[in-house]
C-alpha cells in the first residue's frame, strides 16, 4: 500500500493507505482522531469538515493520498494550548450552539474558516457559509448566534 505523510494538528504523521481511502477515514481509522465525524456518503452533510492548508474541506471529498504533504487541522486541534476551549468553541458552548454534538466538529471548522476570511460577517453571510453543514438538532438559530458572538470577540 502507498504511504502518505502529512502534518495533522502540528504533528507529522505517516501511514499506509489504500488508494481509495478518504482523508476522513484516514483521520478516524488510522490516526484515531474520531472527532471528525462521518454523517453521509454524498459529501452533503459537512460533519467531516477539516482544514487542509488553511481552507475548510469536507474530508470525504479528498483521498488521503491527495493530502500528502499537507497541513491538516481537525477539531482536536482547535482548543487553546492549555486545553481550554478556543474562542469559537467557547462561543458554541455559551450560546447553546450544539445539542447532540455530532455535526459540531464540522460546524466549528466551517465557522473558523468563515471568520478567517471575514472578521465581521452578516447573519446572511453566516447562514450562506454554513449551508454545507447540516445540523438536525438546533435549527441553526443558536449556531448563528455562536458564530456572531465569536466574531465579536475575535474582531
Amino acid at each position: 500500500m502507498p504511504s502518505v505523510t502529512m502534518t495533522v494538528n502540528g504533528r507529522a504523521v505517516t501511514g499506509e493507505v489504500e488508494g481509495r481511502t478518504l482523508l476522513s477515514q484516514f483521520l478516524r481509522d488510522d490516526l484515531k482522531l474520531t472527532g471528525t465525524h462521518i454523517g453521509c456518503d454524498t459529501s452533503q452533510c459537512g460533519a467531516c469538515t477539516v482544514h487542509v492548508n488553511g481552507a475548510a474541506v469536507k474530508g470525504c471529498t479528498m483521498l488521503a493520498l491527495e493530502a500528502d504533504g499537507a497541513e491538516v487541522k481537525t477539531i482536536e486541534g482547535m482548543a487553546n494550548p492549555d486545553g481550554s476551549l478556543g474562542v469559537i468553541q467557547a462561543a458554541f458552548q455559551e450560546h447553546h450552539g450544539l445539542q447532540c454534538g455530532f455535526c459540531t466538529p464540522g460546524m466549528v471548522m466551517a465557522a473558523a474558516d468563515l471568520l478567517a476570511g471575514n472578521a465581521n460577517p452578516t447573519e446572511a453571510e453566516i447562514r450562506k457559509h454554513l449551508e454545507g453543514n447540516i445540523c438536525r438538532c438546533t435549527g441553526y438559530h443558536n449556531i448563528v448566534k455562536s458564530v456572531q458572538a465569536a466574531a465579536a470577540q475575535l474582531g
Binding site: 482522531l33 472527532g35 468553541q89 458554541f92
Partner: peptide, 9 residues
C-alpha cells in the same frame, strides 16, 4: 459540550 466541542465525544 466540552467533550463534543473538542472531538472527545
Amino acid at each position: 459540550d466540552v467533550r463534543f466541542l473538542t472531538g472527545n465525544g
